[in-house]
Simulated assay, not measured.
Amino acid sequence: MWGRFRKAGGRDSHGLRTEPKAGGDRRPHNLFEAAATYVTACAQDDQERSDEAAGWVSPEALSFGVNELACRAVIALARERDESPETVARALLGLPAA
């Protein structure tokens, strides 16, 4: 029974690994590096670079990293502007004030 759990857990956690592809001698990419590169590339309309960054980690890890980056960016802007995070987030998305 525990073997099944270990096997399932290993399968799930493997998708979050950031190991380089076979034959790669560089260090693995951090999910936050991937998120930062991906978001920057998207902002600069660099499809090739965003595709490259998306391949560094699993889609789930990239999603988590992008979410964390968004949260930190909104908090930093809110502090800088002396506004609430909700106000900043809505302004960035072009939404009316709540």
Rank of each mutant, 00 (worst) to 15 (best):
N30W: 03
V66F: 00
A41H: 08
L77I: 09
Q44S: 14
A61Y: 00
A35T: 01
P20D: 06
E48I: 12
A35C: 02
L31I: 03
V74E: 05
R79C: 07
G24F: 05
A78T: 08
V57H: 00
S63A: 10
V66T: 01
V88T: 08
E83R: 15
A98R: 15
E80D: 12
D51V: 07
E86D: 15
E80N: 10
Q47E: 15
S84I: 06
S63R: 01
C71D: 10
L77R: 12
V39F: 03
E52Q: 15
T87H: 15
T40N: 11
R49I: 06
A98Q: 09
N67E: 13
L93Q: 14
E33N: 08
R27G: 07
R27E: 11
E86M: 13
R49L: 15
D46V: 06
E48F: 08
C42T: 11
T87W: 08
E86G: 04
A73H: 06
A53P: 01
E19L: 15
A43P: 04
T37M: 08
G24T: 04
A91Q: 14
R90T: 08
S84G: 08
G65D: 02
E33T: 04
R17H: 10
G94A: 12
L69P: 01
G65T: 03
Y38T: 00
F64Q: 06
H29W: 14
N67K: 14
V74I: 15
T37K: 03
A22C: 04
T37Q: 07
Y38R: 00
A98I: 10
G94T: 11
L62A: 01
C71G: 12
